[in-house]
Design a protein around this nucleic acid. Structure first.
Lengths: 190, 190
DNA sequence: GTCTATATCATGATAGAC
DNA sequence: GTCTATCATGATATAGAC
């Protein structure tokens, strides 16, 4: 996920792997140090404390997901196409980097980052709601509570991602897009 | 949630509150003992170890949710009505016992119960998929991958529950049912 | 069955050499 | 900036009286 091989990135890669696989609390800083091939001292030098590692991880991944969503929506005029593009990117990303997706979608950040907002309140989720709101403006999407519409439009695809990450879906997500998307869309389409 | 005031139930109530609020790992057995008004020794006498508390909790709540889903579906002939009844019960329950719902839906059980299956694989989720499969048999639901259809039918409502629990939805869930359900249903209806 | 007091141990974090 | 060695804390779990 983090490709340059400097110390920070090696630590972040190791941490992401362990946090996603076992969880934050069942991973010790020693474990991270061992997997990254970096000493504990160096880790504390760079990140201050264990929370600092998670902090960096969440921050970088949130930014990455923002970019993903922005680029998925970019270049499309209609809310339909923008939302479709977003789901396509999410499916791709979940398939390429399942641990990153898992850590972003299902880890309970509040438990280890006291000041973290709930996932639903993070920028990426806000952006999805904005697309829905735009769709209501243009008349593509039925007018209603935006929170409800967004839950219905993206809830199915997100649940499918969770299912895939849990190993209960055999097919790669992008392959299912043409099946899932029409269902998701027609739930809110006007 | 657990109403009789014997030692076991008092411990389980305290544990549920703390696990849902702060998380399993940020809750010590001392915390549970203090909140329950029970000594540590008694807790270990009844549950063996900390994991045993979580084990009991998950087991009891899973059974409870199974009953909920069964009773939501009961007495209805069509898949439409059965699924509708299930969502209605889930909304009710999430509103009455948000911590129990939170602990069941969003806690990562694997992290503290090594042998626990992913939530999606648990009986309650299986039962939802069965309703979807039946709906395909009767022709109410479009034929397709059951996992995909179930994700789309229940994904929206489940996401709305998460949104509500996270405090991002002002209205009580049951009040939104008549808005959400038609959207969810028409995503898979034939 | 319930309690208090205690043992044990892992982990987060630091010190200080290089 | 990186490392090893060490500390300090606090949590799980147990012993054993009542």
């Amino acid at each position: 996920m983090f490709s340059s091989d400097n110390t920070r990135d090696r630590v972040l890669n190791a941490a992401l792997e362990l946090f996603a696989e076992r969880g934050y609390f069942t991973t010790s800083v020693h474990d991270i140090a061992r997997l990254a091939g970096i000493s504990i001292g160096s880790i504390y030098h760079h990140f201050g404390d264990k929370e600092g590692i998670a902090q960096s991880l969440v921050s970088l991944l949130t930014t990455h997901m923002e970019g993903l969503i922005r680029s998925g929506a970019a270049g499309h005029g209609s809310a339909h196409d923008r939302a479709h593009g977003v789901v396509a990117r999410l499916f791709q990303f979940a398939e390429q980097e399942p641990r990153a997706m898992d850590f972003m979608l299902t880890a309970r950040h509040r438990e280890f980052l006291p000041s973290a907002p709930p996932v639903c309140a993070s920028r990426p989720f806000q952006m999805m709601r904005e697309i829905v709101a735009e769709g209501m403006e243009t008349g593509e999407i039925e007018r209603m509570d935006v929170m409800i519409a967004a839950s219905c439009l993206f809830g199915g695809p997100l649940r499918l991602i969770a299912t895939r990450i849990d190993g209960l879906l055999d097919r790669p997500l992008p392959e299912t897009l043409d099946e899932v998307w029409p269902l998701a869309w027609r739930s809110v389409a006007r």
